[in-house]
């Protein structure tokens, strides 16, 4: 059931720690969440589980699964959804008391909430949502909607994010190049969180959140081509598909280069805002793909034919092959481990 009454989920199944999803309209939050379920299920870590805290959240996962695998389409945008929440359980390194009162770290089961409570993504921004249009995964050719004067982010949502221990910030570089509103949305929300949290703190304090910045649509031809051409691509030895990846250590630099080379607005301001308002080490960049790349008949990635979406003018974008998320689980796990380990 869709919760439209308030910003924060109130279900009784909730864990004590939460991660909120943060991103502009069309930044792929819905698809990311749907893909996360695939990533969890395909993970070798059997301690991982993701489940909804209520019927609406569970149905969301079910629908996302159906859309991606059966309809071969992307989940509908979250126009009206508020307050969806899932619990992710995992093993986490946590401090435990040993003999003689000594403290040590040990693996222990942990849980945290993953909340999608912003839904329409415009809530994070300063602009109202554009009029609904046929779904396009890459709307780069269409003119950006007329953007009216700045709107104020939803207060409840901001307060909720301020209360979360972690945030999953999604940035779609292709959409950002076309519309350029991610930075706008990010700055507006960031300032509101700071306004909500920082007063009364010690001078020099920063926001305590952990932030996983997910640069989405790594599978997009332009994003992948840039990564490949500039030497960012590497491969995990254990990856049976030989998917390319951008190592997390290089993700921020790649993000900045992406901004420069694809002429994507003021991406540097996003990086700058994150480094100024959050503590060092609490922000990490991930280059992700919700649907992953296409694989050939041999089950391997081929740089000659890797696009996993079928897009045609005037038609709904379709998913071409199997969903094989790249770096979708990793930012969530990183956030989960950080916030659960923090005690």
């Amino acid at each position: 059931m869709t919760n439209t009454s308030g910003a924060a989920p109130e279900q009784h199944n909730r864990a004590s720690k939460s991660i909120g999803m943060w991103g502009a309209t069309g930044s792929g939050k819905t698809t990311f969440l749907a893909a996360l379920n695939f990533a969890v299920l395909r993970s070798d870590n059997e301690d991982l589980r993701l489940y909804g805290v209520d019927d609406a959240s569970t149905r969301f996962l079910t629908q996302g699964n159906y859309d991606l695998t059966t309809r071969h389409s992307f989940p509908d945008a979250t126009q009206q959804i508020r307050g969806l929440s899932w619990v992710m359980s995992l093993s986490s390194e946590a401090p435990v008391r040993r003999m003689f009162g000594r403290m040590a770290r040990a693996s222990a089961p942990a849980e945290f909430n993953l909340d999608l409570c912003d839904p329409p993504g415009r809530v994070f921004g300063s602009a109202p949502a554009p009029a609904p249009r046929p779904q396009r995964r890459m709307d780069i050719d269409s003119a950006p909607p007329d953007i009216p004067p700045a709107a104020v982010p939803d207060r409840d949502i901001v307060e909720y994010l301020a209360r979360c221990q972690g945030a999953l910030l999604l940035i779609d570089p292709i959409r950002e190049r076309a519309l350029g509103d991610a930075q706008d949305s990010f700055q507006a929300t960031l300032l509101r969180i700071a306004q909500h949290y920082l007063p009364g703190q010690q001078p020099g304090s920063r926001l305590p959140h952990y932030v996983a910045v997910c640069i989405t649509k790594f599978d997009d031809p332009e994003v992948y081509a840039l990564a490949r051409a500039n030497g960012y691509c590497s491969h995990d030895e254990g990856d049976k598909h030989w998917f390319p990846r951008v190592h997390d250590a290089h993700a921020e630099r790649f993000f900045r280069e992406l901004g420069d080379k694809l002429d994507i607005g003021d991406i540097d301001l996003v990086c700058s805002g994150l480094s100024r308002f959050f503590y060092p080490g609490r922000v990490r960049y991930f280059v992700t793909s919700a649907i992953g790349f296409h694989v050939g008949p041999d089950g391997r990635f081929h740089p000659e034919d890797y696009q996993n979406v079928v897009e045609e003018p005037g038609k709904q974008v379709r998913v071409r092959g199997k969903i094989r998320p790249i770096n979708v689980l990793e930012p969530v796990l990183w956030l989960g481990q950080q916030i659960t380990a923090a005690g």
Binding site: P221, Y224, A225, H302, E304, Y306, Q307
Partner: peptide
């Protein structure tokens, strides 16, 4: 193969 520059999105 697919356009190496990524501009042509026609599937190979």
């Amino acid at each position: 193969p697919q356009d190496p520059a990524g501009r042509d999105r026609t599937l190979p």
